[in-house]
Amino acid sequence: ADINLTISSWLPPAHPINVDMLEGLIDMMEQATDGKVSGEIKLGLAPPPAQMDLILDGAADITILFNGYQPGRFIATKLIELPGYQGSAEAASVAYWRAHEQFLAKADEFKGTKVIALTTHGPGQIHSNKPVKTLADLNGLKTRLGGGVSADVGAELGLVGIQVPAPKVYETLSSGAADAVAMNMGERLSFKLNEVAKNVYEMPGGFYRGAFAVLMSQEKFDSLPDDVKTALEEKVFGEPASKMMGIAWDKSDDDARAATLAAGDNTIVTASEEDQAKFAEMAERVRAKVLAEISDLGIDAQAAHDMVAETMASYGK
């Protein structure tokens, strides 16, 4: 390739973000530009919260952020993390991108960079090493939360927050220093949760979702030849890449669910109708709080929320 972009990632080598999503992005860029643009993934250049600096200072060309790792910086994007939406990660990622275009970009939370894809993992559930049968069982559970909306939901559920970086989740759960972790189903494979968190307590639509953003150095993008820019903008960046990532999340969730059911000693408990109704009330409170935060940025948060819900509900139909 004429242009080889350095893509920074902080996730474990075999994580779907690396092997499916970022590699998928490279494939899409190669195809769209007839091989003129390619990319190379570099692991461990900087810790997660420093990823945006890598882009701003030209140490890498593309990176992926987990917004929840930077409290205070990303408020508007919490919109997609809210509980209550029904639908796949694919639908959510597409809706996220559209909502960003139409509403959220105004807050300019990724300022100085070029946003090339937005995605969210599938519904976030509670994985525990103690049996959890009802919503009430969650009260007092020492749980690793990922930041963002998951922290607000955790407070409603009565979870006790434990802060550990993702690679330490296995150790923390196996030693009993934590009882549970909040993650999407797919991470059961990435973090070997089938061994240390044999119980999944599942809320249809999830307790929360987790927002990711793929950013490119604006400077690097500007330096590309015009035909390449056009090809990338039309065929890769934005909705196509976001959708591709959402599909990869859904696939990882499906794989993990199958592996969990096949493990024999793992159980997946789905919340009862009654508990779903109880959680809907909690979700309502979280939604009101977060939408108020987003409204404070001068965004019509309610309209944005309704647009996401609507897009997801009608997605693929």
Binding site: P49, P71, G72, R73, E109, K111, G147, Q163
Partner: peptide
């Protein structure tokens, strides 16, 4: 510069919301 950047993005710590 990086401190300045953290301020301009409004970065806070998770639980105590101390400005980074």
């Amino acid at each position: 510069d990086l401190a300045d950047r953290a301020r301009s993005y409004g970065d806070l710590t998770e639980y105590l919301a101390i400005p980074v």
